[in-house]
Amino acid sequence: MNQFQYVRPSKQQAAIDAVAKDPNATFIAGGTNLVDLMKRGIATPQKLVDINRLPLARIDADPGKLRIGALALNSTVADDKQVRERQPLLAQALNAGASAQLRNMATVGGNMLQRTRCSYFYDLAMPCNKREPGSGCGALEGINRMHAIFGFSDKCIAVHPSDMSVALVALDATVLVSGPKGERRIPFIDFHRLPGDTPEKDTNLEKGELITAVDVPDGPFTKYVHYQKVRERASYAFALLSVAAALDIENNTIKAARLAMGGVAHKPWRLTAAEQLLVGKPATEDTFRQAAEVAMQGAKAFKHNAYKIKLGPNTIVQALRTAASAA
């Protein structure tokens, strides 16, 4: 790892300035992904701006929404009473990620900014457009069993690895950002990007912009929710595929639905068409299967990930089934 300057500002503006003005500077919070990438020479910042002393770790239970500070730890959020009561789907998704130790380090903001786990991205001796634009995509014709089935481009077929983000996109969260040009709010669904021709950019954050909080609006999804994660071992593994499902059911009729998938695209993948199909229908296996089929329209597999075309709908059905019986 290269040497770097280390600064630890106490004021938000100083932190933002430090990163905005230095092309080789970056923020560090939990460090669980950045330190890893720095050790492997994939991230080589010359300056680290430690934001852990900024007052951004609060969880505010406001009327109508939860405001979760960007520095709130994953474990703190998952165990928070308000979060568990008002957004149980988020708590479930957080607990499905990483390990207890990592959740004690990783922050909400950092979790969203996790970079892909694509093996080609992680190997300096293999091509990767995300790591080194123009070098090619190693996964396209390579070993791509973990890769995308939606929204990919011929430049990049990597997937976003976060579990938390799948729940947040389903829950219509909003990301609060502060930057050199002031503050702005980014709907969660617009926060992460598809790779297109610029896979090196994971998100729509501008240089120097700092995530300060995430707003999660209250909804009717306090009961019939489930985060279903399918992985190759029982815990502590990235998802082959995951589904966040949230339903509002009355008299066995679905009044509202939220559905998103992880492990299938360069961003957490919201399944709006499937949600629409669910509304007004009885909460039955048939309905779930129909929604799952709609959800998978447009999916396309590569050499090693065709199983996702089948695992996807099955996992959606499983998530909806479990959510519907979660009471």
Partner: peptide
Amino acid sequence: CDYGQCGACTVHVDGQRVNSCLSFAVMHE
């Protein structure tokens, strides 16, 4: 492993268990 993937480096920082391999010492001032 040095990448936060095994837990062998687990220590308590202010009472919380963390992977000591994934954080810079200076951040624990």
